[in-house]
């Protein structure tokens, strides 16, 4: 590249980064500013009076009586449990799909994928009434059941594609060596497909860490998750940006750290989602 072209390229990249990162940066910076500085007519790119006070007040649930600590704990528990269950249930299904010669089974991932592209509102009312009848409204279990359902399509699609690329000879020789069918899956196939399994786990975790609509519809207090709590801060006091920014950051920080550390799998999942067709 000529120097001029090079300069142009980096200018474009710079603008692009400004576009993608500025909103997140602005959210982060303001969460460390005291309220009066947030409303300053000369906003600064760095906090002039750095403070963690907003975070303390959010975690105390100040002003609106939202138990943010409880919401944080609910989010962690639900997201982690659904991730483990999703990888297990989706993983064995994906294995079955990748090895079966049955046409019905073969078409399942596409059905699941289509399902994941339909509005959640199409399912919400019966799910709500069912959970109400089972006394599972506002419980972690109820939310987990629903989340598990909506977590399966992507990993099933992704893992079954990957499993197909693993030669059956490995499994056959393991069987001859005395492994039973389940040992073959968990000791041979899953380890060989570690990248696909990790990617699926990250995607399920992220999806359920962030999920809002079902959490809002199916929980009210005890099982409330962070996105709902954040929205409650915003709804209760629309101009309390100190609380809104800090509560938002509490949901964003752990996830961004995890995804940045595991970026290889995230990018692999986003680019290799089996959509090469």
């Amino acid at each position: 590249m000529s120097p001029i072209k090079r300069l142009l390229f980096f200018a474009v990249v710079l603008f692009y980064l400004l576009y993608t990162l500025f909103p997140i940066y602005w959210l982060a910076v303001n969460s460390f500013k005291p309220a009066r500085e947030i409303f300053s007519l000369n906003p600064s790119l760095f906090p002039q009076n750095f403070t963690l006070d907003n975070y303390v007040r959010v975690l105390r649930g100040e002003g609106i009586g939202v138990n943010f600590m409880l919401a944080l704990r609910n989010t962690v528990v639900v997201a982690v449990v659904v991730t483990l269950l999703g990888v297990f249930v989706g993983g064995i299904a994906a294995y079955g799909i990748s090895r079966s010669k049955n046409r019905l089974i073969y078409g399942l991932p596409l059905v699941f994928l289509l399902f994941s592209l339909t509005p959640p509102q199409t399912y919400a009312v019966p799910i709500f009434t069912t959970l109400r009848a089972l006394h599972l409204l506002d419980t972690q279990i109820g939310l987990m059941l629903v989340y598990l359902t909506f977590s399966l399509p992507l990993p099933i699609w992704f893992m079954s594609q990957y499993f197909k690329s693993i030669p059956r000879e490995f499994e056959e020789s393991a069987r001859i060596d005395g492994c039973n069918r389940f040992q073959v899956i968990f000791k041979i196939v899953f380890p060989l497909a570690a990248p696909a399994v990790s990617t699926s786990a990250i995607f399920i975790f992220m999806q359920n860490w962030n999920e809002f609509f079902f959490a809002m519809t199916l929980t009210s207090r005890r099982a409330m998750t962070m996105p709902v709590a954040i929205m409650n801060f915003q709804d209760a006091r629309a101009m309390a940006w100190d609380l809104s920014t800090a509560s938002s950051m509490l949901a964003v920080i752990p996830l961004v750290i995890i995804l940045t550390v595991l970026q290889r799998y995230v990018i692999q999942g986003l680019t290799g989602g089996g959509l090469k067709g």
């Binding site: 959210l27 962030n210 954040i230 949901a251 970026q263």
Partner: peptide, 16 residues
């Protein structure tokens, strides 16, 4: 940086 907007909760994007 390119996947961060997609990774944060949608409600956080809305509030931001």
């Amino acid at each position: 940086a390119s996947f961060l907007p997609w990774a944060i909760p949608i409600v956080v994007a809305g509030i931001t």
